[in-house]
């Protein structure tokens, strides 16, 4: 039965009209029906057509994920829904700003870790550094584990399909 089926993480991308309330609709769909949101990002990606892209990382059984996708597709401002986890290879990246405070020795140590993990130093104050790190969520987790920061700000996952897989607005229209 479906209750026993394993939950799996899915990265779902949604192309929406950039209009007031659209994010509330998407979030309300998840909260109203008790689905999880592990990460969510949103930004306008096509200013000419006023389209925004929402990247959602969620987890659930196949049943629940199919339900989430069907419900998202039903929302009026939603143009297209793509489940990158199912629909093929994709790249997913996250950006984080990571603040480390401490004495000179500690900061030097952090700089060394940043260097071999390709994090960029973006701010420096007496006794404090801020690094910018991009990569997969796992890479960011690893960096955070190593530098033991006092504060982290993460942007959430952005993802895109590889090759010819394109999330684009389809022409809508009644099929007769």
């Amino acid at each position: 039965m479906k209750a026993q089926e394993e939950e799996r993480r899915h990265t779902i991308c949604v192309l929406v009209d950039n209009e007031p309330g659209v994010l509330a609709r998407v979030i309300g769909l998840f909260s109203g029906r008790g689905y999880n949101i592990d990460s969510l990002t949103v930004a306008e990606v096509d200013p000419r057509h006023k389209l925004s892209r929402i990247n959602i990382v969620t987890s659930g059984t196949t049943f629940v994920i199919e339900q989430i996708k069907a419900l998202l597709a039903k929302l009026v401002p939603v143009h297209e829904v793509q489940d990158l986890t199912v629909e093929g290879p994709h790249v997913a990246r996250e950006l984080a700003l990571v603040k480390v405070l401490g004495d000179r020795e500690r900061l030097v140590q952090a700089l060394r870790i940043a260097d071999f993990m390709h994090a960029r130093l973006v701010d420096s104050t007496p006794g404090g550094l801020v690094f910018e790190v991009t990569g997969s969520s796992e890479e960011i987790d690893a960096f955070i584990d190593l530098v033991e920061p006092v504060e982290v700000s993460r942007a959430g996952v952005v993802a895109i399909g590889r090759g010819h897989s394109i999330l684009g607005a389809r022409e809508t229209g009644e099929d007769g």
């Binding site: 009209d17 009026v76 401002p77 143009h79 809508t172 229209g173 009644e174 099929d175 007769g176």
Partner: peptide
């Protein structure tokens, strides 16, 4: 402009 379509067939 219609932006809301439903599969009927």
């Amino acid at each position: 402009r219609r932006r809301y379509a439903v599969r009927r067939d």
